Structure formats: structure tokens, C-alpha cells
Amino acid sequence: MFKPIYSALIALTILSGCTSVPEEKKDERDPLQSINRPIYDFNMDVLDTYILRPAAQGYLAVTPTPVRAGLVNFTTNIAAPIDAVNAGLQGKPGDMGVNVARFLINSTVGVLGIFDVASNFGLEHKDEDFGQTLGVWGVGDGAYVMLPAMGPSTVRNVVGDVVDKVVLPEIALTTPQTLLIFALRAVEARASLMAQESLLKESLDPYVFMKDIYFQRQLYELHDGNPPVNEEPTDFDEDFLENL
């Protein structure tokens, strides 16, 4: 199912092979910028313009807010065991316990997770992923990469996403179910960004803006919302970070 993505990546790599990055725009975090920028343009000018944004607009038009909330709760609950495993691997037994409890409560009383009953008991969702786990273990970000159809990432988080979204889900879910969950999350995330998309369009360099926001988000998540003072990110919109 990944062949179209890799084909697009290869084609864009060939097309951008002779493109050089001006010295003043080089970024140590982004050694693949000459490849990443054409992929970013493809994502925004083609995939987002003609597929994802129209799909998100249609989704907002036909889906009542309570139904959207139920879908978000459902997809969050499906990922709770993965959150719990990663919390354990990061040495956070408390967060692991919260996620396990949330999954048990919401999967039963919450009707397969459609209703977030656990939050009413003070059990707030603890979002953890394998990319964060690798970061806690001391693995660096690696190069910044822009993936066709999937957006910004780093080498570390690509590995983390493969574990979180392919390896672990396939243990409990079928491939069609995994793809359905991925599609629901993608459309909901894009719909949630409608109000913030002007920030991207009005920035001097949207590519750099998205990259900086992405790294701020990684820092924010790695330190559970409390980054070190000397590394604290600049002002940002939390909704933008959460859905990027």
C-alpha cells in the first residue's frame, strides 16, 4: 500500500536532484531541504488542494459536532494500548496505568470508545508514541524529512510511526481497519486546522514556518508540555501543533 508514496518520493527526488539550497537558507536540521521543498509543494499544491482540503470541507459540512467528537474519541481509544506500551517503555508507570484504565472504561461503559467516560473520572489521555520513546532513550531527531501525503517528520519519527501505525496496529487490527483509522484521523486533523491555515499562508516562508512549528511540537511532546527553560519554544497555537 506504500508503493504510490515511494514512487512519488523517487520522482520528486530525481526532479530536485539539481536543485541547490542557498547558503543563507541551509539548516543543520534539514540537510535534505532540496528534496523536501518539492515534496512540500506537491503536498500543498496538489494533495491538499485537490484531495485533503475538499475532503475535510465535506466532512465538516455533513458531520455534526457530536458525531465528530465520537469519532475522535473512538480513534483515540483504539490507540490507547499503544500509548500505554510507549508510556511503559518511557518509564512512566502512572501514565501507562491511566491509558490502560481509559481503554478498559471507554471500551465498555463508553461503548467502544465513542464516549470518553474515563475523563469524567479524572483519567486524562496521555499521548505517547514510539518516536517519543526513542527520544527518551536518547535517540536524536535525525534529518528532517517531508513525506509525500504524510507531511513533516524526522528520521526518528518515521521509525516511530512505522512501529505505532503499522507494526502494533497490525497485531490487533486488520489492514482495512488500520487504513480506516488512518483516514479518519487524517481528515479530522485537516478539518481541525481550517481555522489556523491562514497562519501558514501569511508566513514569509510557509515551508520554514511548518518546519519550525514541527520541531516546537516535538520538543513540547517529548517533555510532556514542559520543555526546559533554555529550550522553551516560541509562541505557537496549540491546536496547530496538536494536529500538524
Rank of each mutant, 00 (worst) to 15 (best):
G122L: 14
G131V: 04
F121N: 08
D116P: 14
T108P: 08
G88H: 00
N86L: 01
V100Q: 04
V100D: 10
T49G: 04
V136S: 06
Y50D: 13
V167F: 14
V163Q: 15
L60W: 00
V139S: 02
Q90E: 04
L71Q: 04
S119N: 15
G135C: 04
G113C: 07
G94E: 03
K92Y: 07
R68M: 11
F130C: 12
M96H: 00
V62P: 12
K126Y: 01
E170N: 12
P66Y: 05
F121M: 15
T76R: 09
G160D: 13
I105D: 13
A143V: 12
D95E: 15
T49K: 15
H125R: 15
E124R: 10
I51C: 08
D95T: 00
V158K: 02
F121H: 14
G97R: 01
D141C: 12
P152C: 00
R156H: 12
G131A: 05
F130A: 11
V111C: 09
W137R: 10
D141I: 02
L52S: 14
L47R: 00
N43R: 07
F74K: 04
R68C: 08
V139F: 14
G151A: 01
L104P: 08
P64M: 01
V85M: 10
V85E: 06
P81S: 03
G110K: 05
P152M: 05
G91C: 01
G97S: 09
A149H: 10
L89T: 00
D83G: 02
V159I: 15
V162Y: 13
Y144T: 03
G58E: 05
F103N: 08
L104R: 03
Q132S: 10
A79N: 09
I51R: 06
I105S: 05
Q90H: 00
G58M: 02
H125E: 10
V162C: 07
T154P: 12
D95C: 01
A69W: 10
V163R: 13
I82E: 01
L89E: 10
A149Y: 15
Y59T: 00
G110N: 09
G140K: 15
M146R: 15
D95H: 02
N157S: 05
L71P: 13
G151M: 09
T133H: 06
A84F: 03
N43D: 12
V159H: 03
N120R: 12
G110S: 13
V117Y: 11
R53N: 14
